[in-house]
Design a protein around this nucleic acid. Structure first.
Lengths: 242, 242
DNA sequence: GGTTGGCGTTGACCTGGATCAAGCTGTTCG
DNA sequence: CGAACAGCTTGATCCAGGTCAACGCCAACC
């Protein structure tokens, strides 16, 4: 990995200079020397939709930062029933410190761009740089809050409320196109109907029907199955039942 | 807080000497000086069943360690639907670092014994003792794993599987009486039927019926509504559908 | 061009769990 | 003692969402 030392980059590795998530992600906790060391061992790469990143009960030897795209975390029962237990967006950190093997699957829901580095390197840095552990703790606590919010959705909301909640979640996490009036927001769904069903604990058919209903009631518009325009965010919120 | 300095306690505050969770809980990360400082600001106390520990959207100014009993973490929708999003047993840490106010309710499910200390004291120690943050990160990651496991239960399991999974969860976390043959385990349910329903995303009636079915099928015995004997752990596991 | 296969929608029907209602058991309290 | 109440169980009925099946759309491929 080369290293430019001019004023602008200020000792920041080229790999990282243009990195969009550098400040928001875990790397933001590193000082320049550490960033250089980590960048040396890192590589950016792109994963195609549907490819598996981490297998259940597999050794984890790399951590990654999500630079772009959406990663779905899934769990599967022995008879094949599946549940998506989390979605990771940029600049989330992907990996499970303190454990040798993963208890979940991670799969690219869309095309995903990652910056990966060896677990060992990161683990060593965690010990010498407490700020890193602090960042990880913050992210873990946010993910825990999210997971618990979602437990309410899974356990207590109706199918209609689940689908509305899902759309709001995506709108919040995907960088959306906003219309001039500020009321209308548009985005591409990063998941197929089957994925949405697995996320919501529903079937494909129920998801489809609920989307149709939202469309029929002019709360959203859908083009090409994936592109959603929320006509009225407040009406959508009203249907999410919080 | 007094301080005995004989060989056995080795500079450990009296409050902590007999503490059953000292090594397993977050305090295990502190050196003797820090433990003394924290103990000075700490106090042990007991909370009766049903009492609220942390209110939703309330300021959190104390953290606590659970010494005994079970704390339920709940979330409630505006129309009153409730979901239990976590159960805390000894020696779990109770609190939410990095946030001023809580987004969940914490309530004593049974009589609960706590060791509480001011948030500010702990937050200061976190900065000077990285091991503390490490402990918290470890607990947060375990809670995250648990939450995600439970999402599968909520989203994809049947009522029968949910109830069996719940019994296994309790058997795993409550110190159970074990019978000689090693097959039979007994414990008291720390939750009412209503709480169990809120934990499983079911109604009281469904929980009751599923328990009745497990009893009719000789998988469990129930005395006084609360005392459960698992006749055959493997049969119970078989019904949890993993 | 036709075929195949993935993905989504829609309709008809069924069922697991919710809802509504009654009653049982044990405890507290006047 | 009886009344009131909390917690739990059980039965009858209902309905939201699952299941099964048909079909539409579109892209890839021969």
């Amino acid at each position: 990995m080369e290293l430019r030392k001019d004023i602008h980059t200020n000792g920041i590795p080229v790999l990282c200079v243009s990195c969009e998530v550098r400040h928001r992600g875990v790397c933001g906790a590193l000082d320049p020397d550490q960033l250089i060391a980590l960048a040396k061992a890192s590589h950016k790469h792109t994963i195609k939709e549907g490819e598996e990143l981490i297998g259940d009960a597999e050794q984890i030897d790399v951590y990654s930062n999500v630079l772009a795209g959406v990663v779905k975390l899934t769990k599967t029962l022995s008879d094949g029933r599946q549940q998506i237990v989390g979605l990771q967006f940029a600049p989330d950190f992907l990996g499970r410190p303190f454990r040798k093997e993963s208890s979940i699957n991670a799969e690219a829901a869309t095309e995903v761009s990652l910056c990966s580095f060896p677990k060992a390197t990161m683990d060593r840095m965690m010990q010498e740089q407490p700020g890193l552990e602090n960042r990880l703790l913050q992210q873990a606590l946010i993910e825990l809050d999210d997971a618990r919010d979602w437990m309410v959705t899974l356990g207590r909301k109706t199918a209609a409320e689940k689908v509305a909640s899902f759309l709001l979640l995506i709108a919040r996490n995907i960088d959306p196109e906003r219309e001039a009036n500020g009321r209308s927001i548009a985005f591409d769904l990063p998941l197929t109907r089957a994925d949405i069903a697995d996320f919501l604990g529903l079937t494909i058919e129920t998801v489809s029907r609920q989307l149709t209903r939202l469309r029929a009631d002019n709360v959203i518009r859908i083009e090409n199955n994936r592109h959603v325009t929320v006509e009225n965010i407040d009406r959508l919120r009203g249907r999410a039942g919080n």
